[in-house]
């Protein structure tokens, strides 16, 4: 998650203090992982240095919590560029599960059992997320659905792999 760009976007509605930004960010995007204050001020000073935000009046007394930040036009352009660019799809080519399956087959251990255990664990988490989704608001639903679709993809891979274990054994242990 690009915290910097998210800050810039949030600042488009008007200048804010650091703590206000953190709170808004946490409410909207932080869900499982709220920001640390250190992270907030490090991000803001980087944005300041890059000319993407500017100080919008400093109250007397000094200290980072007194500063109000406003987005610059370069900042707005930066958000626009970020929103318009594709994220790199994460292909997960170095998958721990894959390593486990191959190692199990290689060492003559029951790989099917490993896949069963993993399926149960995935489904357990999917039930939890489904519950959260049913009781949550729309934002919560979208976040949970994103996680659910990814877990489902893992599970489809598990099923496919389970169906190909015999073939895999021939390749891994000719």
């Amino acid at each position: 998650m690009s915290v910097g760009q998210a800050f810039l976007g949030l600042l488009e509605s008007g200048p804010r203090h650091g703590y206000d930004l953190k709170k808004t960010y946490d409410d909207r995007f932080g869900h499982a992982r709220p920001l640390h204050y250190g992270q907030v001020y490090a991000t803001l000073s980087r944005l300041l240095k890059d000319g993407l935000v500017e100080l919008d009046g400093v109250e007397p007394g000094g200290g980072p919590e007194r500063k109000r930040y406003a987005v610059t036009s370069a900042g707005v352009t930066d958000v626009e560029k970020w929103l318009g660019s594709a994220e790199k799809p994460e292909p997960y080519l170095q998958n721990t599960l894959y390593t486990k399956v191959v190692l199990a087959v290689l060492t003559g251990r029951p790989a099917a059992g490993l896949l069963d255990v993993q399926r149960a664990e995935h489904l357990r988490l999917m039930r939890e997320l489904t519950q959260r989704k049913i009781t949550g608001d729309l934002a919560e639903q979208l976040i949970c659905d994103h996680a659910l679709f990814h877990l489902e993809a893992d599970l489809r891979w598990l099923e496919l792999t389970a169906a190909r274990l015999d073939d895999l054994a021939k390749v891994v242990r000719p």
Partner: peptide, 22 residues
């Protein structure tokens, strides 16, 4: 579909006519 199974309390997996229980 795993997402559909997300609405269940528990799953029973059938493979080659036999059940595996989690």
């Amino acid at each position: 579909e795993a997402r559909v199974a997300g609405y269940s309390d528990r799953e029973v997996v059938v493979r080659d006519g036999r059940t595996r229980h989690m």
